[in-house]
Design a binder for these strands. Structure first.
Length: 839
DNA sequence: TGCGCTCTACGTGCG
DNA sequence: GTAGAGCGCA
């Protein structure tokens, strides 16, 4: 262990961290959110922590509330605090719990802690999302929680499926009370730790919700399943139980609890961290009420604001110096947030340079806007700004399509965060459902999903009968198959079909238990073959089916990776383990990817930072967003959202709005957002594209915001609006074709037909982004190691959807050739050639 | 039972 | 614009 330091008096304000010797990493710029090379550092502090950061990191006893303004070094404070606890106060790492909301944040924290205290110590820390931590604790205490060991976690889609069943069962009119709405109501109660019996049934609707809630819970219990709220609720119930041993264990387990993004916690999460820290009161929470943008998801700003009341002895530290952004950006952000009511009094400030003005650009339409943004992005790329340093934000996902189209046309490498996720794709959910049923046959939702996929002539009515029969007997649907087939309630054909399905599943189940050593990958493979799923996709022949097939194969690949990883760690890979990992893991961890321009919603941008930020759609009714039938109370939240968007920018900030916009299938005419009026005039430079004002009404540019038409700067009428030619930069490697997955780990873009001809491969120039799918290449006839396949040889640079850019080290021929590729940050991976592209 | 057409509703999305 | 649900027909 590398602590070569004398103990530091914990009352010492000018604490310098870390107390370890190898300080090389300590001089990294503050908040390096991107893996990109740091640019001219926004005048960071000469010392490691400023006075306030040091106070927050140094006082380790009792409750602590840190208001951390945007860009003020929040993550740094948390990690240094943990380092301080471990290295100076000698708290065993396993006694420290640090909770985040996203995997990305947890990963980032872990990464920095590796650097600070070394991987051996960092490994034992409890760092993770609320959900991951709770799942882990529940696995330990599943008995006390009354759960089967192999409980499954139902995602949104599964939850909706359960709710739809409930609605059917209770004969609820799904027009008046859509499952979605009921589910929302139930989640709301769960997030406030209210069980059905705690709820009023005063009127018809309340009663309906309670009945739906009860039925929903019944289904989950029967299926041995939990939803995401349950994970935390179950742990909370244990932790608040004064008598159980599990409760005692939970309350004593941790000596220090830290919570990141505290403004986002809901009641359950707050009670949970309080319970876990009750015995010692060492609860440190870090947040920013100005960045509370998840009220609609159950976050309760009152918690951060009321923390002092709940903890009268809490120390409060405010971090108000922004190290991230230019003075102009900070000024713009302050202007937007200032009118917000009920803020904790604080003032963000910066000593960074003034920087360029905020550009407010009026555009004619959403296409004009997109073209303008793409043009400016090309400019930046031609100035050698890395694409990964550029982000384009929008308020709603529907805005992304046009941006994508134009980016693609302009050959700008981009990635869209959000949208259709890999694990929400039908084919992926199908395979996972097979695995889940095999592990846990109680899971009716999964059974219903796959019982007729591929088609086995077991239609909806048969499934309904099966489910009804099962609930009549109080068993799971799977268990009900045999008795149903023995009964007289089914016609012969469906009976036969069901029986065949049952036999198939039983065979697979015996594979599950029979495989020694157990191999999740082998099982998944067996499932694909035995169920006919693979053949079904192959037989389809459409480009879409081909992409689905590739996705499925990628999933198998990911299972294989999991297996390898666990075996390397000396652990036993299990299907359950894999399922849990992927249910709790989602977006964002594409650190290894080639840099691309990030397209994302403002919500998705929280916690990130970029050198250049474009905020699009700054129009009334879009941002702030208005829907017809909502309470108007979200006004401040929209404002905070705008604040979050602005404060992501380090150096450049461009805000655009359009006169008219085609969205949700209709054209809307908009005026510039009220938020633009709140930005101080002297930090803005207003301009308009050449098309602005040319079509339709509102010629003068509506009110305020961006009315100055400096069209001289935008004379180029080729294409839409303004394009500045990017002179030399050839389009950078473009491994994207609009993969919408935030986890492009396995996603395969739809149709992409490879050249079929076995052209003289060595001669042919390949385009960046082209895929290798040739099967008929000479070397591919051979099995075993070969020197080249097509234009690929050891040393060739290739790109992979999840691992980014790598270098080929070895090649294997055969009908489906593979390459061993070394990826930065991932090490060597064996990958089928058809999943690689030239970089 | 399954396919294909029509209608509709549509925020933001962590895990 | 588009995905998912519902309905009618083969």
């Amino acid at each position: 262990m590398a602590f070569g330091r004398e103990e530091i008096d914990e009352e010492d304000d000018a604490l310098e961290f870390p107390p370890i010797d190898d300080g090389a990493e300590m001089h990294r710029p503050l908040e390096p959110a991107d893996p990109e090379p740091a640019d001219p550092e926004p005048a960071g502090p000469a010392h490691l922590l400023n006075e306030y950061q040091a106070e927050a990191a140094g006082h380790v006893d009792g409750p602590l509330l840190v208001f951390a303004g945007a860009g003020s070094g929040k993550t740094r404070v948390i990690t240094y605090r943990i380092a301080n606890l471990v290295a100076v106060h000698r708290i065993p790492p396993y006694r420290i719990l640090a909770v985040t909301f996203t995997n990305k944040a947890a990963g980032e924290m872990r990464h920095r802690l590796d650097d600070l205290i070394g991987p051996e110590l960092a490994r034992d820390l409890w760092v993770g999302t609320f959900h991951a931590i709770c799942a882990r604790l529940l696995r330990r205490h599943h008995d006390a929680a009354g759960l089967p060991r192999a409980f499954v976690i139902y995602d949104d889609g599964d939850q909706r499926a359960v709710m739809s069943r409930v609605v059917k069962e209770l004969n609820i009119d799904d027009k008046r009370f859509p499952p979605r709405q009921l589910l929302g109501a139930i989640h709301k109660h769960k997030q406030e730790a209210q069980a059905p019996e705690d709820l009023p049934r005063a009127n018809f609707y309340d009663d309906l919700v309670v009945r739906a809630y009860e039925a929903y819970e019944r289904h989950f219990k029967a299926a041995g399943a939990l939803d995401f709220d349950d994970l935390m609720l179950r742990v909370l119930r244990l932790a608040e139980d004064p008598d159980s041993t599990a409760g005692t264990d939970l309350r004593r387990r941790f000596g220090h609890v830290l919570v990141d993004e505290f403004q986002d916690v809901n009641q359950v999460q707050y009670r949970l961290v309080r319970a876990l820290s009750r015995e010692h009161g060492n609860l440190c929470v870090v947040g920013d009420d100005d960045q509370s943008i998840y009220k609609w998801r159950g976050a309760d700003v009152r918690i951060v604001r009321g923390f002092r009341k709940d903890n009268p002895n809490a120390r409060v530290v405010k971090l108000e110096q922004n190290y991230r952004s230019t003075e102009n950006v900070v000024a713009a952000a302050l202007g937007v947030i200032a009118p917000s009511r009920d803020r904790e009094p604080k003032e963000l400030w910066t000593s960074n340079e003034k920087g360029a003005p905020i550009e407010v650009v009026a555009t004619a339409s959403e296409r004009d806007e997109a073209a303008f943004v793409a043009g400016r992005v090309r400019d930046l790329l031609s100035q050698d700004v890395s694409p990964g340093e550029i982000a384009v934000f929008y308020r709603v996902h529907a805005q992304s399509r046009v941006l994508e189209e134009v980016m693609r046309a302009e050959r700008v490498p981009y990635v869209v965060y959000g949208g259709h996720r890999f694990f929400e794709r039908a084919e992926i959910k199908d395979l996972l459902s097979y695995l889940r049923v095999l592990v846990n046959p109680l899971s009716d939702v999964d059974l219903a999903r796959i019982v007729n996929v591929p088609s086995r002539k077991i239609g909806g009515s048969t499934v309904d009968k099966l489910l009804a029969f099962a609930s009549g007997r109080g068993t799971s649907a799977y268990e009900a198959i045999v008795p149903l087939c023995q009964s007289s309630e089914l016609a012969t054909a469906p009976k036969k079909a069901l029986a065949r399905f049952y036999t198939l599943m039983e065979e697979l189940r015996s594979d599950l238990t029979g495989l020694l050593p157990p191999s999740p990958r082998a099982l998944a493979d067996r499932v694909l073959d035995a169920t006919g799923y693979r053949d079904w996709l192959k037989a389809d022949g459409s480009a879409e089916a081909e992409a689905r097939l590739q996705n499925v194969e990628e999933l198998v690949g990911s299972i294989a990776e999991y297996e390898i990883e666990l075996e390397a760690a000396g652990e036993v890979p299990t299907v359950e383990g894999y399922l849990e990992r992927i249910t709790l893991a989602t977006a964002g961890d594409d650190a290894g990817d080639a840099p691309r321009v990030c397209l994302m919603t403002v919500h998705a941008a929280k916690g990130l930072e970029f050198r250049h930020v474009f905020i699009t759609g700054m129009e009334e009714d879009l941002f702030p967003f208005r829907s017809q039938d909502r309470e108007r109370d979200d006004d401040d939240e929209e404002r905070r959202l705008a604040y979050v968007a602005i404060t992501r920018a380090r150096v450049g900030l461009v805000v655009t709005h359009a006169q008219r916009r085609m969205i949700f299938g209709t054209t809307r005419y908009g005026i510039p957002s009220r938020f633009l009026q709140d930005v101080p005039r002297d930090v803005i430079e207003s301009m308009a594209t050449s098309l602005y004002g040319s079509v339709g009404g509102g010629g003068g540019g509506g009110s305020g915001g961006g009315s100055g038409m400096s069209s001289g700067k935008f004379g180029d009428r080729s294409g839409w609006g303004s394009q500045v030619q990017a002179p030399r930069a050839p389009a950078p490697p473009l491994p994207t074709s609009g993969v919408r997955s935030p986890m492009p780990l396995f996603a395969v873009p739809l149709p992409m037909h490879p050249p079929k001809a076995p052209a003289p491969q060595r001669e042919r120039e390949r385009q960046p982004g082209e895929r290798f799918v040739e099967r008929d290449v000479d070397a591919s006839q051979l099995s075993g190691e070969v020197a080249t396949i097509g234009s690929v040889a050891p040393g060739t640079r290739v790109a992979h959807g999840s691992f980014g850019i790598g270098v080929v080290r070895a090649l294997d021929g055969g009908s489906d050739p593979t390459a061993t590729v070394r990826f930065t940050g991932w090490g060597d991976k064996r990958i089928k050639l058809r999943f690689l592209q030239l970089a």
